[in-house]
């Protein structure tokens, strides 16, 4: 039994990793641009399909997919921001919701038309097949790989934000974008960059998830809802919040299934409700958003 528990705990970390990658972008985009990006799940799905195309159709290497796909999805995100989203920053939030919701549906349907409604087969890359002996248990190599990539991406992102000039501009812009603009920095470009980075992370999550989730047009939809829960619990605009809350939700879902399966998904909403009651800004959120 304890062996099984440990395995489930590790599964929770792996599922949580995907939430972490998705919620960092969703949270940063909300924190800086004030937009709830419903298209985020669709970008994740696009990442999985792009990986499928690179590996399955073009018979490329999974490593290439991991490097190229996030870049491509990041560029698509940046393009969406400059052509569409940017027009709506100064109007009532409802229009942003309609736009990103519409984008989500449009991207999903485009994929459905291009690839068909049913899922695509995606095998775990052969180099990452098999299990690793962790001493106390055997665990699938590929799942550890997901976790390791997430750790690397998170550390890289935190170092970028904390140690570089551009990172300090992004942090400043999350606090007060008008003031950053008044200091001579074109905040519009920073918005594009942040949206692009968020999209790239969603794309990365999509690539990583492709071998373990069903690659299908609607795969982003259900994931997105859970990711919103992660963002609310972690606090809007906080990377650390996304990381901690993403892992907590991953664990809650996988451990919860052990206790009583129907309860697992309900549990995360109960958890969110409790957080909202005792700490409305989320675990690591700043006060600004709840004035």
């Amino acid at each position: 039994m304890s062996q099984y528990l440990i395995t489930q705990f590790l599964n929770g970390l792996v599922l949580g990793s995907l939430y972490v990658l998705l919620s960092i972008g969703l949270s940063a985009i909300f924190g800086m641009l004030g937009i709830i990006n419903f298209a985020h799940g669709a970008l994740y799905m696009l990442g999985a399909y792009a990986a499928y195309t690179v590996v399955g159709v073009l018979s490329g290497n999974f490593l290439i997919a991991i490097l190229v796909v996030p870049l491509a999805i990041g560029l698509i995100g940046a393009l969406l921001e400059t052509t569409l989203l940017r027009r709506l920053y100064r109007v009532v939030p409802l229009y942003n919701l309609l736009l990103t919701f519409g984008l989500m549906l449009a991207i999903q349907d485009a994929v459905r038309i291009g690839y068909g409604p049913e899922g695509e087969p995606f095998n775990i890359p052969s180099a990452l097949l098999g299990a690793v002996n962790l001493g106390f248990t055997y665990y699938p190599k590929y799942r550890l790989f997901i976790f390791a990539i997430t750790v690397l991406a998170s550390i890289g992102l935190i170092l970028f934000l904390e140690k570089t000039k551009l990172g300090s501009i992004i942090r400043a812009g999350t606090e007060d974008s008008d003031m950053v603009d008044a200091l001579g920095i074109d905040i519009g470009k920073i918005f594009t960059l942040v949206f692009g980075i968020g999209a790239a992370l969603a794309g990365l999550a999509g690539v990583l998830a492709a071998p373990v989730q069903n690659v299908a047009p609607a795969m982003g939809m259900s994931f997105l809802v859970d990711t919103f829960v992660v963002v609310v619990i972690g606090g809007m605009g906080s990377i650390i919040g996304s990381i901690i809350a993403g892992l907590i939700i991953g664990e809650t879902l996988t451990i919860g299934v052990l206790i009583w399966p129907p309860m697992a998904t309900t549990l995360i909403y109960v958890f969110m409700a409790i957080i909202l009651l005792i700490r409305p800004r989320g675990l690591f959120g700043r006060e600004k958003f709840h004035e």
């Binding site: 000039k165 300090s168 942090r171 400043a172 606090e175 007060d176 003031m179 200091l183 001579g184 920095i185």
Partner: peptide, 17 residues
Amino acid sequence: RIFSSLTVLENLNLPVV
């Protein structure tokens, strides 16, 4: 409108000359 999450040095290095 000081950026509260930035250090004093980061605040000072932010403006474009």
